[in-house]
Each structure stands twice: as structure tokens, then as C-alpha cells.
Design a protein around this nucleic acid. Structure first.
Lengths: 102, 102
DNA sequence: AGGTTGATTCTATATTTTTCGAAATAAGAA
DNA sequence: TTCTTATTTCGAAAAATATAGAATCAACCT
């Protein structure tokens, strides 16, 4: 089993690429319904294979999920995972601290 | 000038490594006063040169700042930058969305 | 069945990242 | 000034990531 730090680092790393970050921010606009891969492709203007690679990375890190509908694949954000991720950064804030920060 | 996406992707990428994430979470416990590099080193148990490389990466992405005091270098989190970063992910949430999510 | 469309996998190459020993710098103590 | 301590920079090798053309797969339409 991979540790908590490792899983979260992997998620941050997945988001740590200009294109994937752009993808996530676009996907996030689609709510729980999601956005089709083709729609994403016209948004980011990338060869399908490259895009697919990036989407897979986001899926593997489970920051987005996918749902098939006929030939289409709809991608949507994993809102819970994202929230947990951002919370994780602040978890121990000021435990030893001296001045206000969080 | 690098774009907003690029700067934020760089910050996420900086945090997207198990060791650097561990470092940040440790640094965050130190409040605005910060934590000395040597202290961080005993926490992560890494050769000084490797640690230094990782710290530089965090500095370059400006998720942490540094302050010299004699021979010591104190590292502290850039709380504002971190907050801006996490906010950025949700910025356009549900703009086209149909169901509740954010 | 045959053709088209939406999307992923295969494969290969180019680039970036990670790691750490050794050398360098710089402050403080003896 | 010499020695130690705190930390960074240099340099070089190993590992991971990014990119995209070509091949593939699956669903839909006629």
C-alpha cells in the first residue's frame, strides 16, 4: 500500500503540469455530469494521443473520474479527493508555530 | 512572463513529490518563524545536497521563503501563495455545470 | 457488412527530474 | 587564523515524464 503522502504527492504531481491543470480547471466547470474527451480536446488543442496520456495520468491519480456513454467518455472532477488534497497541506499548520499564519 | 496556469502548475509540481510534500508539511508546522534546514534534514533523513535541491525547488516555485540568521537558514511556508494556489483549482467550478459539486 | 467517428494503446524519441558524492562558501568558535 | 558546523553548488549518471505518429478498438449509422 502506498502511503498518504505518496498518494497526495502523486495527485499534486498530476496537477503539476500546465496542460493537465488547464484540463482539470475545464473539467471542473462541467460539474458532476462531466465533459467529453473530444470537448476537452478542442479546448486544449492537442493531438488525441497526447491528451489521452494526460487524462490517464489524472485518472490514475484519481483527481478525475470517467463515465462512458456510447462512444463518448465523460470526464468529471473528483471533488472529494480535491478537497481532501488541499486540506492535507494545512493539516498540521502552526503545531509548533509561534506567530499567526493559518 | 509566465502565465498564471504555468506558475500554478509549477507550484503544484513542486509539491508533487513525496519528499517535498513532507518538507512542506513540516515547514508549515513552524509558522512564520520557520524551521532551519538542519532541522528539516533530520526530519527527512536525506543527504544535505539532495535536501538542498528539493528546498531550492520549493523556493523557485515560491511556496516557501527563506530567511538567514547567522549560519542558519530558516524556511517558512508562503501561506498566501498556498491559499491562492488551492483557490485556483476551484475558481470556475460549475460554471457550465448542472448538478451540485462545490 | 462497410465506413465513419470518438477515443485509447503501442512504440519510440527527446527532455526533465532525481539523486548524491565531492567541492565550495560562509559564519562562528577556539 | 585554523577548525568545525551549516548549507549550497557542481557534475554526472539513472530514472521518470512528455510528446505524438501509427495502429487499434468499439459504437454508431447507412
Amino acid at each position: 500500500m502506498t502511503s498518504k503522502v505518496e498518494r497526495h504527492a502523486d495527485q499534486l504531481s498530476a496537477l503539476g503540469h500546465p496542460i493537465r491543470l488547464k484540463i482539470l480547471r475545464y473539467v471542473v466547470t462541467g460539474g458532476t455530469e462531466g465533459i467529453a474527451a473530444g470537448d476537452i480536446q478542442t479546448h486544449v488543442e492537442l493531438p488525441a494521443s497526447t491528451l489521452s496520456h494526460h487524462l490517464k495520468r489524472l485518472i490514475d491519480a484519481s483527481v478525475v473520474s470517467t463515465r462512458a456513454e456510447g462512444t463518448f467518455l465523460y470526464y468529471s472532477a473528483n471533488y472529494d479527493a480535491l478537497r481532501a488534497l488541499t486540506d492535507y497541506l494545512w493539516e498540521d499548520c502552526c503545531k509548533r508555530g509561534t506567530k499567526g499564519c493559518c
